[in-house]
Design a protein around this nucleic acid. Structure first.
Lengths: 391, 391
DNA sequence: ACTGGAAATGAATCAAGGT
DNA sequence: AACCTTGATTCATTTCCAG
C-alpha cells in the first residue's frame, strides 16, 4: 500500500447551529487503508477506523430520503417498483441532516488535503447535502447535472418529468490543489471544454445486476459511464477512491477498469456479494475505452414552444400548408389553433389532412416577406444555436 | 384589483435551529396589492406590507454574492470583527441563511395556499435556498435545470464549464393544488412531457438592456424565454406574479406580454427606471384565444346510469373487454354484474383484470350490429347532447 | 436465425371531488 | 376530517415471445 501524501488530520469545523459532539478527530494509531476491499460495516464507524488524510477522491451516493407516499401505478395499471428500502427512511429532516453532517465530517477527515468529493442526489436531499458540506468547510467546485436520456415519465401529468440528478463536486477546503484532468476531458469532448451537464443513459440491460430471480439486485445502481466520467475527471491512475455507500459496487468496478484503487464501505451483505462478484469480473481497460461511448449524440428535440418563446414567430402568426389551403394560428404555449380546435403542430396537421399522423415541422409554413417558408427552417435556426450544448 | 381567492394567513413553521422571531403573520388591515407596479423598497419590508394570501406565483432571483453585505438582512451584528478568513466565510454563510429565511418566510405569507414559488440560483447559493425553503414548509415539486447554450467558458481550465443554473419549483405547502399546465407544455413539445432540463440561451443582443454608455444595465438579466416557460407552466392568464428581486424587470415584461399581472419589489432606482421603460414598451398578446393554456377539455361527468336511463343500453345487455374474455351484464341501476358480483363499471373492470383500479369507460365494450364498441362512445353521445342543450 | 409486436421497467416526495 | 368513488395518466429502451 502506498499513500503518496498524507495530510494532517484537520478538525472539522462546528457546523452552524449544531449541538452534536463531533466525531473523533484522530484515527487509531497504525490504522491502515485496506485497498481494493469492501468493508462490511456501518458507514461512519468504518470511516472512523480509516487513517486520516489517506484518500484522493470520494464518490458518495447517500440515501435520498425520498419520503414516498402510497403506491404509484402506471397508466396501464402496472405498479412502479419504488425505493422502499429501510435504509432510505429517516424520521425527520433533522435526522437526515444529522446523518449527513456525520458522514460528511467523517469522510473529510479521511481525505487528503487536496482530495475532492463527489456526492450525487436529487431534489429530495441534494440541497441539504450541499448546505451541510459548505457548513463543514468543503469548497464547492461545480455542481454537475446528470441528464438521463431515458428517465421514468411523470405518470400523473402533475409535474415536469424528473429527468436529471445532481452531483456536487467539492474540494476538501478552499485552498486544495485538486486534480482536474482538463485536457483529457476536452480531448474526449470534440476539443471543447467539458460542460457541467452530462447526458448519460440509465443503468439498464446487461450492465444492471440481477439477483437469482431476475429482479434488480440494487434499487439505485448507477451507470458505469457516470462513474467513468467522474474518475477520469478528478483522479489519476493509482489514486485511492473511497465510496462510503458502496451499494452494487459501480465505483469499485470502474476504479478497477481505470487503474485506480478503491475502498468501499457497505452494510448489506447481499450488496457486497454482488459487488465482489462484479468487480472480480471487471478487467482493466484504457482510459479512452471508457470515455468514448458515454455521450450519446443525437438531434436534440426542439419544442415548437421555443420558437414562440424566442419570438421567431409571434403569437397569432398564421401558419399554412404548402398550398395555403389550411390556415392555423400560433398560440403562446406553442400549440396552434385551426378553427376552434387547439393542439400541437403535429396533431392539427394530421387533422387538417385527415391523416392519422403528421410531422408538423415539415407541413406548416409561415410567411417571411411574402415568401412561404417551412417552420422546420426555424427549428434549424434553433438547432444551430443549440448544437454546441449537445443533445 | 381583484383577488379571486384569498387564503387565510398560515403561520410559517419554525425553521430548524432558528432562534429568530418570525415575521408578522398578519398584514396591516386594508393592505392592498399594487398590481402591475414596482415597489421601491427593501424586499422584506415591502413584503410585510402586502396582504397575506394574495399572489398566485412567485419568481425570485435572489442575490448570491456573499460579499454584498448591504444586500443581506442582518438581524444581529454581534459577531463581526472577523480576522480569520474561514470565520468570515462562516459568518457570511450564516448571514446569508438568515437573509434567505427572512425573505422566503415573508414571501410565503403573501402566497395563496395553492400558489407556487420559483427560485433561481447557482451552486453558490441554491443549496442554502433549497434547504431553507424545505425547513419553512414549502414542498418541492421539481428542480429544473436551465442549460445555457452559450455559457461563459472556464478560462483557467480548472473546472467544468459552468453551463447551467438551477431553478427550484415549490408549492406553498405539501397539499397545495397548484397550477401546472401539463397539456399546454406537452402540446408545445412535440406531444411529449416537458422535462426538468431546459435548453435556453443567455440573455444577449437586443434583449439585453444597456445603459447610456452601452454597458449592460443589470449584471444578471434573465432571458425572457426562461420566464415565459415558467409563467406558461405554472400560472394562468390574469394571475398575479410576484417578483421580490425585480432587477431589470424580466418578470414584469413577460407577465405583461402573457396577460398576467405582476408585482415587483426593487431597491435600486436605476434598475427600476430601466424596468419601467422596458415594461412600457412590452405589448400584450391581444387575442385571448392565443393566450388561454391548452387543456384537455374538462368534460362534464356522466354517470353510467344515464346510459341505461337513456336506453342507449338495455338492462341485461352484455359487456365484454376488448378480447371478449370477460363478460358482464348491465343492471337497471347502472351497476354491472360479473358472475354473481355486482358493482360499478370501474370496480368490476378492476376485479375482472385482477387490478387495483380500472377506468370502466375505456375497458368495457358492447356489441353494435356485431361490432365491438367502447361504452365510452356512448358517454360521448350523451356529452354531445348535453353540450347542444347548453349544459 | 430473423422479425415484428407486446411486455417490462427505471431514485417518484405523481388526484380530485363528493359524501 | 375521514372516507369512498370516479376516472385520468407514460418515454426511451430493452427483453421476451410468437410466427
Amino acid at each position: 500500500m502506498s499513500i503518496s501524501r498524507t495530510g494532517a488530520a484537520v478538525a472539522p469545523r462546528m457546523s452552524l447551529g449544531s449541538k452534536r459532539t463531533e466525531p473523533r478527530l484522530v484515527s487509531p494509531a497504525g490504522a491502515v487503508l485496506p485497498l481494493d476491499t469492501i468493508i462490511e460495516s456501518d458507514c461512519i464507524a468504518a470511516l472512523e477506523r480509516l487513517p486520516a488524510g489517506s484518500v484522493d477522491l470520494v464518490f458518495a451516493d447517500p440515501p435520498y430520503n425520498l419520503q414516498l407516499g402510497g403506491d404509484l401505478h402506471r397508466p396501464d395499471n402496472s405498479m412502479v417498483d419504488a425505493v422502499d428500502d429501510d435504509w432510505d427512511k429517516f424520521a425527520s429532516l433533522r435526522d437526515y441532516d444529522d446523518f449527513t453532517r456525520a458522514w460528511l465530517a467523517a469522510v473529510r477527515r479521511v481525505m487528503k488535503p487536496d482530495a475532492t468529493l463527489w456526492v450525487i442526489g436529487s431534489y429530495h436531499n441534494i440541497f441539504r447535502v450541499g448546505a451541510t458540506l459548505q457548513d463543514l468547510g468543503y469548497w464547492i467546485l461545480n455542481d454537475v447535472v446528470w441528464r438521463k436520456t431515458n428517465p421514468m415519465p411523470n405518470f400523473r401529468g402533475k409535474r415536469f418529468t424528473n429527468a436529471h440528478e445532481t452531483l456536487i463536486w467539492a474540494a476538501r477546503e478552499q485552498r486544495s490543489r485538486y486534480t482536474f484532468n482538463y485536457e483529457a476531458l476536452k480531448a474526449g469532448n470534440d476539443d471543447v471544454q467539458m460542460r457541467s451537464d452530462w447526458l448519460i443513459p440509465l443503468c439498464t440491460g446487461g450492465e444492471r445486476l440481477k439477483d437469482g430471480d431476475g429482479r434488480k439486485a440494487h434499487p439505485t445502481q448507477k451507470p458505469e459511464a457516470l462513474l467513468a466520467r467522474v474518475l477520469m475527471a478528478a483522479s489519476r491512475p493509482g489514486d485511492v477512491v473511497l465510496d462510503p455507500f458502496f451499494g452494487s459496487g459501480t465505483t469499485g468496478a470502474v476504479a478497477k477498469k481505470l487503474g485506480r484503487h478503491f475502498v468501499g464501505i457497505e452494510r448489506d451483505r447481499d450488496y457486497i456479494a454482488h459487488a465482489r462478484e462484479r468487480i472480480a469480473l471487471a478487467s482493466p481497460v484504457g482510459d479512452a475505452d471508457m470515455l468514448a461511448p458515454s455521450e450519446k449524440r443525437s438531434e436534440p428535440r426542439i419544442p415548437f414552444a421555443s420558437v414562440v418563446e424566442r419570438a421567431l414567430l409571434q403569437p397569432g402568426a398564421v401558419l399554412t400548408d404548402g398550398n395555403e389551403r389550411h390556415q392555423a394560428r400560433v398560440r403562446v404555449d406553442g400549440s396552434i389553433m385551426l378553427g376552434d380546435i387547439v393542439g400541437s403542430i403535429h396533431k392539427i396537421g394530421a387533422l387538417a389532412q385527415g391523416l392519422p399522423a403528421c410531422n408538423g415541422w415539415t407541413f406548416w409554413h409561415y410567411k417571411d416577406n411574402g415568401k412561404l417558408r417551412l417552420i422546420d427552417d426555424l427549428r434549424a435556426v434553433l438547432r444551430k444555436e443549440l448544437a454546441a450544448a449537445g443533445g
